[in-house]
């Protein structure tokens, strides 16, 4: 009994530490993604970007955080008060939850202990991520609706129909990966890519998944929910202070998690040719995975500052009439490939 208690206490401490570290890393990455976004945007537009706060403007995210916290926290008079307050919290909560099933590395040996670098190795890991992606829409919908503002409502309705439409193509392109690996666990999917990355077998699936991730994250060219030239600020028009900060922050967290999931599913997760994820006491795995993730964050920003926004009907046409048929075709091709060539 005591042994069991000790084991579970150690287990709880291990998981709690991992969750806390993961939480801080996610927040840090999200904060510096805003800095990266502004610097990259500046580079693309031949400007300097943030440069005054600290060397090269490196303290800009902290200055922004202080600004967000100290601004007036405004609640519109005619809003649905509780839902209005709930929405940003729900949005960032769902965004942060997704990192629980991502295997960040093999095992980390630190202080004579072995740390399993995955909070929960559930056997349905990838479905869990899809489920959270489908829940992400609530924060936007509730926020937009409860603000009692027509522009916010437009933004919310656009966002939700866009996310529902692109979830289908996303799920269908995932099925091909699940067929290849025969497992829904992210750990197993990564372990099978130690030799060859999935992107080699699934180039079309990767393109589809990348496009759908852009749409799910509400990133340009799919940022219908907040396109400022049409809808002022979209679903968060009426938000101010840290509630607005939560919405903006959660979008960067979503982007980070999406990029990590893409790296796990198509680019071998913590494996890289010539590098062993067990080096540096197991720290090499997270370094490889984070490097891949940062590369995809850069790709997301690159796309945002290169492509113009879609018109709304074009977005729906792309989702329903191109991506979904292509995803079904990809699924059939994968099935045929497995049938005729084995795995």
């Amino acid at each position: 009994m005591t042994a069991l208690l000790l084991f579970s206490l150690g287990f709880i401490i291990e998981k709690a530490t991992l969750i806390l570290v993961l939480f801080l890393v996610t927040l840090g990455v999200a904060a510096y993604a805003t800095y990266g976004e502004r610097k990259i945007a500046a580079f693309f537009q031949d400007r300097l970007g943030p440069s005054n706060a600290g060397p090269w403007g490196l303290l800009q995210p902290i200055a922004d955080g202080v600004k967000m916290f100290t601004k007036e926290d405004f609640v519109p008079n005619q809003s649905e008060r509780w839902i209005y307050i709930l929405a940003p919290g729900a949005f960032i909560f769902v965004a942060l939850m997704a990192s629980a099933v991502i295997p960040w590395g093999t095992t980390l040996t630190l202080g004579g202990l072995n740390w399993n670098l995955q909070v929960a190795d559930v056997n349905i890991g990838i479905l869990y991520v899809v489920g959270l992606a489908s829940l992400g829409v609530y924060g936007i919908m509730l926020g937009g609706w409860s603000s009692n503002n027509k522009f916010s409502l437009y933004g919310a309705i656009r966002a939700s129909s866009q996310m529902i439409s692109y979830e289908l193509a996303m799920g269908l392109s995932l099925i091909a990966i699940v067929m290849l690996s025969g497992s829904l666990s992210l750990r197993t999917i990564i372990e099978q890519q130690s030799g060859m990355w999935n992107v080699v077998y699934q180039p079309l699936g990767f393109i589809l998944f990348l496009t759908c991730s852009l749409a799910e994250c509400n990133r340009a060219p799919f940022d219908m929910a907040e396109c400022e030239t049409e809808l002022i600020g979209g679903y968060h028009t009426e938000y101010s202070s840290m509630k607005l900060g939560f919405f903006l922050f959660a979008e960067y967290i979503n982007m980070f998690i999406s990029c990590t999931v893409i790296s796990c599913l198509y680019f071998g997760g913590y494996y890289f040719p010539g590098l062993d994820p067990n080096w540096l006491g197991g720290l090499m795995g997270p370094i490889i995975l984070l490097s891949k993730s940062f590369f995809f964050i850069f790709v997301f920003m690159w796309i945002r500052w290169t492509l113009p926004r879609f018109r709304y009907d074009q977005l729906m046409h792309l989702g329903w009439k191109s991506l979904i048929p292509l995803a079904i075709l990809n699924m059939l091709l994968t099935g045929a490939g497995i049938l005729f060539f084995g795995k």
Binding site: L127, V130, G131, S134, L135, V137, Y138, M141, L142, W145, L153, A156, I157, S160, S161, I164, E167
Partner: peptide
């Protein structure tokens, strides 16, 4: 995914 993520979103959509 099916109930909370899809069906209830449509419910909310219609109500809004």
């Amino acid at each position: 995914i099916v109930y909370a993520g899809a069906i209830m979103v449509l419910f909310l959509f219609v109500l809004m």
